[in-house]
Structure formats: structure tokens, C-alpha cells
Design a protein around this nucleic acid. Sequence first.
DNA 1: ACATAATTGAAAATGGTTGTCAATATAAAC
DNA 2: GTTTATATTGACAACCATTTTCAATTATGT
Lengths: 151, 151
Amino acid sequence: MSETIQGLAVELKQTFLDYLASKGLKNTTQRMIILEVFLEQKSHLSTEELYLKVRGKNPKVGYATVHRTLKLFAECGIAAERHFGDGQGRFELVHGEDHHDHLVCTGCGLILEFENPQIEELQEDVARQHRFTIENHRLELYGLCPACASK
Amino acid sequence: MSETIQGLAVELKQTFLDYLASKGLKNTTQRMIILEVFLEQKSHLSTEELYLKVRGKNPKVGYATVHRTLKLFAECGIAAERHFGDGQGRFELVHGEDHHDHLVCTGCGLILEFENPQIEELQEDVARQHRFTIENHRLELYGLCPACASK
DNA sequence: ACATAATTGAAAATGGTTGTCAATATAAAC
DNA sequence: GTTTATATTGACAACCATTTTCAATTATGT
Ligand SMILES: [Mn+2]
Ligand SMILES: [Mn+2]
Ligand SMILES: [Zn+2]
Ligand SMILES: [Zn+2]
């Protein structure tokens, strides 16, 4: 069950509710609407983009609330904020412990994800060589996707 | 001679002058002051930081001119703009074809540089697997430097 | 020196993000 | 259910790095 889309959504929602409770925060209609809409979308959405989707479902929700709620998602670990050089933050769902990096098409904005354990290991080597304690990293490859390259 | 610091400075200045000429742009006092001060500093300076240094030498130079000139440096290839997540662009000198990535201390802001050909190769593999034509990439490792880790 | 076009610096505009605050909603206590 | 204390909301303003505007100035070719 925890492998299905439905099960995942339930799990993430519970994580969020637990986080709210643990911090003495309140479970509001707006937060639930925003979470539901967020779960329906594909990843890498900007605040603005999610705000427009949320308005489609409930026009009374304000931009600031969407933004604050996305920050909360990131705080409790169900979402991560990313920056791909277009000057605005984008949020994506986080599933458990998986980590991935990104290929970004500078032509059409397409974002692909990849995992490469060898690169991760080499990064750790680099960190060790410099006696750095790594907290996180970012690796992004920018270029043209096949479709854009053939134009 | 082209290996000495002096020789390098002369070379970069010439590259810039050639770029100006090729674009029908003008060689001004401000641009030369900004280039000279930029060459004297260590890398990864923000516009604001360089602006303050330039004012020390000539208080009449404006912030916008410093910013526009840094953009010109980047355009002609003698500088590169970087972003390390603190919300402001930073510029560094570019020497020839070398490429490097960065370790960034989240404690004190220290920035170390490293080169890792194996990682570069693996990145190319990833790009090939997805039929992407890579134009550039960014790899940054964030964490604590030895000094900050031992506090 | 003259003409043309680029440059400059001060100030305002921009745009994503974050802060303010009075009105409202939540959840626990009564 | 009612009261009470506290968190939340949404409209708006503030923030801040960056970019644009524009009249005055400067560089360059003739
Ligand atoms: Mn992703
Ligand atoms: Mn560097
Ligand atoms: Zn594309
Ligand atoms: Zn440090």
C-alpha cells in the first residue's frame, strides 16, 4: 500500500500533520488544499505556478499562504526547494531517502532527473580530501534536450 | 611571460580591449579602473564588494557601471558569474580553458575550488544517456570547513 | 573642431521573496 | 457549547539584488 500513489499521498500528508502537531501549528483548510493540489502536480513547480493551480480550486487562498505552506513542506521534509537559474525557487516532492540531480534544457525548460552513485562517491572523496563535512550538494547539467537540439 | 601574474593581467586586459573594439564599444576610464581593481582582488566577489573596492580608488564610479562592466567581463570570457545560494551573483576570473567546481562552507563562507576529471567524465556519460547536449554545468558541495566543523 | 553614437551615474523600476498587521480560525480548557 | 489563548490568513507594504531609464558627458572617426 505504501508503494501506491494513494498510499504515498497518505503517508506524506501524515508526515505533514505530525510536523504541524509537533510544532504546535494548526491544521487549516488552506494548508490541506495546498497540500492536495501540490500532490497532484508534477514536480519543480514555482510558488506562482502552484498558486494559480490552488486558485483554480479555491480562489480565496492568498499567494503568501501558498508560499508559507511550501516553506513548511520543505521544513518537514516532504518537499525540497530547488533553483535552476531562472531566478525563482521551485519545489518538488521528496520520497524517503532518495537523492537525484538534474538535467535542465535551456531551450524549453524541460527538467530530467538522474541518479549516479559513482558521482556521489567521487564527491565524497573530494570532500574528504579537503576535510569538509558535506551537508548537501547540487549538481545540474544545463544544455539542450534532444528535441531542442534538432531545431 | 604569459605564465606570470603580470603577463596574465596584460593578456586579460587585451582580451577585454579586443572585445570592446569588436563590438563597437568604447574604452573608458571607468572600465579600465574596474578591470584593474578586479584583477587585484581574490575571486568570488559580489558586485557590491567590488563596487566598494573601486570607490576606494575613484569615488566617482557608480554602482551601475561596476555591475554593467562585470557583465561585460563575463560576456567576453575573462570572468564568470557564479551563484552560491546567498542570493547574489559573484564573479571570478577565468584563466583559459580550465574548469573547476566549488566547496562552500556554510559556516564562514569559505569557498574552495577543485577539479575532478572523473566526475566530469561521468557527467558526460549521464548527458549521453539522455541525449542531452551539455552547454555547462554547476557542481557545488555545501558543508562545514575543518575550522567551522571543530566548533 | 564637429558629428555621431556609446557611456555614465543617479534615480526609479523590477520581480521574487519576505514581513506586517488587523481580522479570523483553530484547538484546548472550561 | 462557550470561552480563551494562540496561530493563521490575506491584502498590502517592504525588502534587496538586479536592471532600466534618461539627461548629461565622453570617446572616436571624420
Ligand atoms: Mn527533481
Ligand atoms: Mn571559483
Ligand atoms: Zn528542450
Ligand atoms: Zn567555515
